[in-house]
Design a protein around this nucleic acid. Sequence first.
DNA 1: TCGTGTCAAGATCTT
DNA 2: AAGATCTTGACACGA
Length: 320
Amino acid sequence: MIFRLGYVAMTLGLKDCSPSGTVTFTNYNKIQTEEGKLHRLKKLSKANLENTLRILYYNKAMNIHVYRLTSKLIPLASHPEAVKWDYVNELHDEFKAVGDYIMENNFRVSAHPDHYTLINSPSEKVLEDSIRDLDYHVNIFEAMGLLDYKYKLVLHVGGLYKDKKSSVERFKENFVKLPDRIRKRIILENDDKSYTARDVLGICMDLNIPMVLDVHHHACVNQGEHLDKLLPDIFNTWNGETFNPKIHFSSPKSEKDFRNHADDINLTDFVQFLKTAKKVKRDFDIMLEAKAKDQALLKLSASLTGIEGLTRLNESYFEM
DNA sequence: TCGTGTCAAGATCTT
DNA sequence: AAGATCTTGACACGA
């Protein structure tokens, strides 16, 4: 079986190549004219898309095909008070260049709306803001021409609101009401505090949603279950999907800051997880969430060369 | 050019 | 009930 490695958003191997250039709302407001504001947003967005393309060139050169797009491609896009503009059409060519390159080279790209996006919130406003943010993310995929639902948005279940059971119910109610173009993109990940892998698996099986296991989060909070028990079912939530199952992997920064991400991936823990994954006998992808991004990936990749039972096919592809 | 406080956003813990 | 904390990369501003 084959597994692949990927990383998140930015590339330390490239200088001056942030795909997440932005402007603070405070500063944005200092710009006097509507035209000036628009110009600023457009300039930043254009640079972000160009840098994303550069990152993809780099990924291709490095044989890395699993990559998470930044959520910050279009600054203030879902900010309620920022000027509304048609970034999809105005940046059509830039979006298309990125999307074409992704499809031509079979990249598996995804996005991960940040933790303010909560579709199980009891607040009508928070829900509304969240849907607007999801809409923005889908707009980006669509603008790139990534119309296939295989390009996913990773979400957490949300807050507990002092009552897990009703909060899960609210998630389900709100989820099924989402428009197809959003709902069919969403996949769910266990978090490091509230919703365990087992909680999320239950929801995913109920609603037919692919689940992303975060191994680190599972170590932070669990109900005593071993991953051996859960992993086959987690992978089965991907049956019928185009892409293989995906998991997230990161290492704790320290014993004290256990939930924080370390710069690199702990080799011992990683190999330990591979042993569990091997039993499932299924190809899968691993999104590395390490602060050293692509450098952490390459470092891990290099150190996996000597591991017994593992064949390194290239920088990010392994057979075991 | 460098260092540091600040930043759109919510939830939850602390006081 | 209000304020602090979480966590993160990048801005913004001043030295």
